[in-house]
Design a protein around this nucleic acid. Structure first.
Lengths: 205, 205, 205, 205
DNA sequence: TATGAATGAGATTTCATTCAT
DNA sequence: CATGAATGAAATCTCATTCAT
């Protein structure tokens, strides 16, 4: 019962290292299992396959993050836009939660963000951006409807979703320290909240 | 001498397709040469190896782009900061040149940006961002020196370099049409020029 | 003691299915035990190994059939050949017994006949044919001794053993219904009894 | 140009031996290539995969045999049934051609008949029997139409196709000598031609 | 200029089997 | 009675690369 989880954990640890060094595609299951003092077969006892092993590292952290994000997006959907900009508290709280979840498993998330090429998880960020875009597109269109002579600039809207997500990607990628991360991200968020509409709405000719 | 170049070209064309579909790592030289009606050996006559073949597609477009970027950065270096913000023309001209160079070989650049994982070119964007950061860091520090009680926020400065470069990456990635691309990028540049200092300088305590 | 046999039975049932679908060689013990809601280890508690598991399905039905066949062959041995052809009743009775035994465990026998490649049971039919051949060769030689100028054609004799056994193999393989099977086999047997000597004896030059 | 075919041939020769000894499923490509003094990769240069290697041994002999069989079946189709039984010459000629084709590559055919379990060629004999059945079913039905009060016994007809084909399978399997094979098969064929209708037609009640 | 042959290393995956508990 | 863990061997296959011709 001890060996049990110990070896599984050992495999995961060694896999983390190997994936981080070589990326998913070039990582060698042979090396991972050898590093763990086991055989490749052991990997296939604990995990379905290479993707499954990667998933064992990455799934839970990703899900935690996604849950927080989804909840936030759902709550945004329901908000009255007029109070949107003043709702600093909400965004701050969201940022805090998100950063916490992200830094709890920073290494796993780094794997997902930078080393997943070739795996089933390739393109995760793009999918999150897409999701973000859908959420804020709707919000923007609602708002635009109340601004005579204005409409949403689709490209700008998409780019905005892009930098919004990448603000967090950049953060976790470049700032190892969680507290500093929080300090960095707050002005960025406030800034984005403030400038969003200016960037996104264009004259409707 | 004719067959020569024809076959080389055929290989490059088929390689583009294969790299685009599968990415560098999973692309098969066998398939590339077979698609070109040749054998793997032929690839090694024309190119040093897999990386060399990728480079044959990507080097020239990358160099053109880099040259334009470097020239721009060098010229920025020499400028008096006081006139920076008014120099709209400069930035527009730069954007036009850069976009032109980028769209002249959009497919090669897309390869470089999205499909180079596993190749010697992996991380090219990061290197460009680094270069950008060095350039604008210096500029920012120079400017900060003339603003009493202010200093450069290194993280913000880096993030700024990041979105600056990624504005172009996002553009070429998401907008197939060159003219539209130019329309999209101009407000973004102006916007970044305008907000740069506000984002980058923090109180020096 | 109940669970015990229940699980053993479950394993056998799932093994039947798996062996039938994939054949002995490609059948997976993992899948069998998983389908039974158990682990591979369980198989090794109840059975010696893969062949042993196959045997647990196939041994008893095979033995029943073999016993009937052996008894019949032994009784044939003792008969006076002169009355051979008239003894329709004997052959009919034998056929009825054999068919009954075969259809009682048709699925196990199908496994043995069609899906045993790679197992210890591969070639069972050939061994039965060999046995048949020995029995009827002796009979034929005895008879030939009483026919001046005739001798046994060894090849024909062997072929006869072959179609004799394969008549039953074909039957169980192609006819799911026991009653119809009996209807089919009777004329075939009568026919073979009748033609045997004509096919088997040749001029002794 | 010499090495070329020599090594390919060596692989085929070693593959024949290995397939014959262990059957398709258990045969090891490693062993085959090692026996040939080459690496597994070499196999994949010359052949598509394991099935392809097996096919390289078996395809041509099989095709030759099939061609002769198909031609014969087509010619039977066109014949007037009334002269069927007298046309001994036709059947003899057919047997001679077929036996010749079969014994020209007896080893390959043995592989196909006895060692193909697990390969793409598994069940080839069954498919030939099916084809035979279709051909002779039609013939039998035509004939039955001209016999008042008679109809085709489907089971018997199928069994007949079965022993017809298996006569040849048994032959090549058990008789190494081509001339003896021819001697064996002729009386069997004549016998089958003669008895076919008696076996196949039943009273139509 | 390019082929055709072959290497050699390594990839992931699957399997029957074992054994302490 | 059966599990869960793990082995170890082998399997097929793929690949970039080399080189004589």
């Amino acid at each position: 019962m001890n060996d049990n989880l110990e070896n599984r954990q050992k495999l995961i640890e060694c896999a983390k290292k190997e994936f981080m060094e070589k990326g998913f595609s070039k990582a060698s299951l042979r090396k991972i299992s050898a590093d763990a003092g086991l055989t490749t077969g052991a990997i296939y006892f604990f995990f379905k396959d290479k993707n499954g092993l990667f998933g064992a590292i990455v799934d839970e952290p990703l899900n935690k993050v996604m849950q927080i994000v989804m909840e936030h997006y759902n709550s945004e959907q329901e908000e009255d836009f007029s109070i949107y900009e003043q709702a600093d508290g909400d965004h701050d709280e969201f940022a805090e939660q998100l950063i916490a979840a992200m830094y709890e498993n920073r290494d796993a998330l780094l794997l997902l963000l930078e080393k997943s090429a070739g795996s089933r998880y390739e393109g995760t960020v793009d999918r999150i951006i897409e999701l973000t875009d859908k959420t804020y597109s709707k919000l923007a269109r609602n708002y635009a409807a109340s601004c005579p002579g204005k409409k949403v600039d689709e490209y700008m809207q998409h780019w905005f979703s892009h930098i919004q997500i990448n603000a967090f990607v950049h953060l976790i990628t470049h700032e190892p320290d969680e507290k500093k991360a929080l300090k960095h991200i707050k002005p960025i968020i406030n800034y984005m909240v403030k400038e969003w509409m200016e960037l996104t709405l264009e004259d409707d000719v």
